[in-house]
Design a protein around this nucleic acid. Structure first.
Length: 649
DNA sequence: GCGAAACA
């Protein structure tokens, strides 16, 4: 048996370099290091680096200093490689554990679990190597499993988890004393424990009711505290608000607004925090435009923002007032989190309006609210029936559910002809029903398919043939929407098939030809002349040498360089990406493999993208009805609504 | 196991 051989410095160095952990050093250049006489850390110097192909003096100096700066990561790679673990696990080390990461991991090897992509088995392996005699029952291990369980739940949007569930997860890992593990996690400060909510007081009861201990919850401190900050700051703004203008002044902008819309405008003038909700086509944007117009006329400072670049762009066009992302508004300082704006340096607008507020996760919402000084009026506009935020939390829904924040819900449909089949189906799905489609005029067509390959063939047929021929909607006005990227009915295969039919070509620039439809996958708002935002769909009008012109709905853009990496073929896009856009004709594909991710919000978001025609290629069987019927197949567990009710007393 | 925003 015996100890495994200790890897030499050259092995560790090679693992570090090929894992891409040296900032600024590409794969290709990494492979050329040995030829330049660089095989161990001691060999690294600017003089040697300059011998590499394509590396000049300046780049050599820069590579040298970035190598020195990566020393903490290097130290962790030494530990990982010695434990037989892949070096790339160290990629998140600097962000996750800081400069003294190696020391921290020697003290607690299970701290590795805090990094992305690390499994419990990886951490156990490191522990065996570092501790010599690691024990499965080590309290540090139990503590790490508590945090891991909560972190995993976070990916499904939960901010809290019932204590019972965490205990069950610990037992599943054969932790003998789960309570001790939870206590250790709480003591470390990473995890918070929350008492169950006070039960409603029952007048007939003889004794005051006891809180049910089974309802006790745990949260990662990050998210538990963010949720508390949202609740406290909502209460603070609500209490501090003074009337901005006489509610009667609403009449100056009331033309074309219905009663509910006028009420929403008036609410902004009085309430510190107010909500405006409603489905697509109910006039939320028109109402916001009226708010902005009224406030500008009064000389009030208004800041407009949205969680995504595309929503911000649209908000700006609709209101004719500058708008940006919430991150921009708050002065986001990069991926590590942190905002320039906050309690110390608050926003200076009198009124802050955030559109598409259903996309606000709990941390962004907390940062936004903390940055609003006393007296600010905050209006959150959104549709709680649409897809929830990517990050954890259920902020808009919880604010509504709490019942303590004034809400105006717009219900009158103005856009799709009222009573049309799309509108009828959408409002049924919104309230959890899936009635049989009755649409003799073929505004809505359901095309059954067995399996995703047949579904994909149906999609192509609908776009290229049936819809243009029977309904007169040309392929250019039809958008295909699917839940997934992969599989025969995912965006990748569908785009291949659609390109072959609609615009065959070999793809001269980055795989694109003139006439190709593209979708943006990141913001490039600074490009000339108007820029593009993540999720915008456009058509390539011209390809040149390493650049191309794309006509987006918001205007033409010349795209070159790095920005080209952020375009994909866009005949078929995911439902998530389609959120916030509408097309005359929409084909929604529901393949069987997407069954598990179907939810009411996803289905609702998908079909409300359609203006005049909706085809549903249905191959997901009973999963569809179940997804629509259940409020949400996977409801997010959060504490915000309860916190708000407690504060309101 | 699936999808996904923002910032430098």
């Amino acid at each position: 048996m015996g100890e495994p051989p200790t890897p030499g410095p050259d092995l560790i160095f090679a693992a570090f370099c090929t894992a891409g952990l040296w900032p600024g050093l590409g794969k290709r250049t990494a492979a050329e290091l040995p030829a330049a006489g660089i095989t161990t850390p001691d060999d690294v110097s600017a003089d040697r680096l300059v011998k590499l192909p394509r590396v000049g003096r300046q780049r050599a100096e820069r590579l040298f200093s970035s190598f020195l700066a990566a020393a903490p990561t290097y130290e962790v790679v030494e530990m990982l490689v010695a434990a037989g673990l892949p070096a790339k696990l160290a990629s998140g080390v600097a962000d996750g554990l800081g400069p003294d990461a190696a020391r921290r991991l020697r003290d607690d090897p299970w701290g590795l679990l805090g990094l992305p992509g690390v499994t419990l088995a990886d951490a156990d392996r490191l522990a065996i190597a570092v501790l010599k005699g690691a024990d499965r029952q080590d309290t540090r291990r139990g503590r790490a499993i508590v945090a891991l369980t909560l972190r995993t739940a976070t990916r499904d949007g939960h901010t809290v988890l019932p204590l019972d569930l965490v205990v069950a997860a610990l037992q599943a890992e054969r932790i003998a004393d789960p309570v001790a593990a939870v206590v250790a996690a709480v003591d470390s400060g990473e995890v918070l424990e929350h008492e169950p909510p006070e039960p409603e007081f029952d007048e007939d009861a003889e004794e005051p009711p006891e809180p049910d201990p089974a309802l006790r919850t745990l949260s990662l401190a990050r998210f538990g505290m963010a949720e508390e900050a949202v609740a406290e700051n909502v209460a603070r703004l609500a209490a501090a608000a003074e009337q901005i203008a006489d509610p009667a002044s609403v009449r100056t902008v009331a033309q074309g607004l219905d009663e509910a819309q006028k009420k929403a405008v008036a609410q902004v003038l009085t309430a510190g925090v107010s909500l405006l909700t409603g489905g697509p086509g109910t006039g939320k944007s028109r109402t916001v435009a009226a708010v902005v117009k009224l406030l500008k006329a009064k000389g009030t400072d208004v800041a407009l923002a949205a969680p995504t670049g595309r929503a911000a762009k649209r908000l700006e066009e609709l209101t004719d007032h500058p708008a940006g992302t919430v991150h921009r508004l708050l002065g986001a300082q990069g991926a590590s989190g942190g905002f320039a704006r906050g309690e110390e340096w608050p926003l200076d607008a009198d009124v802050v309006v955030v559109d598409e507020a259903s996309m606000l996760d709990v941390e962004l919402a907390a940062a936004l609210l903390e940055a609003c000084p006393d007296g600010t009026h905050l209006l959150l506009v959104g549709d709680p029936a649409q897809l929830p935020s990517i990050g954890p939390g259920h902020v808009l829904g919880d604010l509504i559910d709490s019942g303590i924040v004034p809400v105006t819900e717009l219900t009158t449909l103005y856009r799709q002809a009222e009573g049309g089949a799309i509108a009828r189906l959408a409002s049924a799905v919104r309230s959890g029903e899936l009635p049989p489609v009755d649409s003799p005029d073929r505004e809505v067509v359901v095309v059954p398919a067995t399996g995703s390959a047949e579904a994909a063939r149906r999609v192509v047929q609908l776009v290229t043939d049936s819809i243009p021929r029977a309904l007169g909607i040309e392929p250019g006005a039809v958008q295909v929407v699917t839940p997934v990227h992969r599989g025969p009915a995912g965006t990748i295969e569908l785009n291949k098939a659609l390109k072959a039919q609609l615009n065959p070509g070999e793809g001269a620039v980055f795989g694109f030809d003139p006439g190709d439809r593209v979708v943006a996958t990141a913001n490039h708002l600074d490009l000339e002349p108007t820029g593009f935002a993540n999720g915008e769909v456009g058509v390539v009008t011209k390809t040149g040498d390493g650049s191309m012109d794309v006509a987006f709905a918001s205007g033409p853009v010349t795209v070159s360089g790095q920005a080209l990496f952020d375009l994909r073929h866009g005949w078929a896009i995911t439902v998530h990406r389609a959120q916030g856009s509408e097309w005359p004709g929409v084909v929604v594909v529901l393949p069987p493999e997407a069954g598990g991710m179907l939810s009411r919000p996803l289905v609702y978001t998908a079909l409300t993208r359609a203006q005049r025609h909706l085809s549903i290629v249905h191959a997901s069987g009973a999963a569809l009805a179940r997804a629509v019927r259940d409020v949400d197949v996977r409801p997010r567990r959060t504490r915000l609504a309860e916190l708000l009710r407690e504060i309101a007393g």
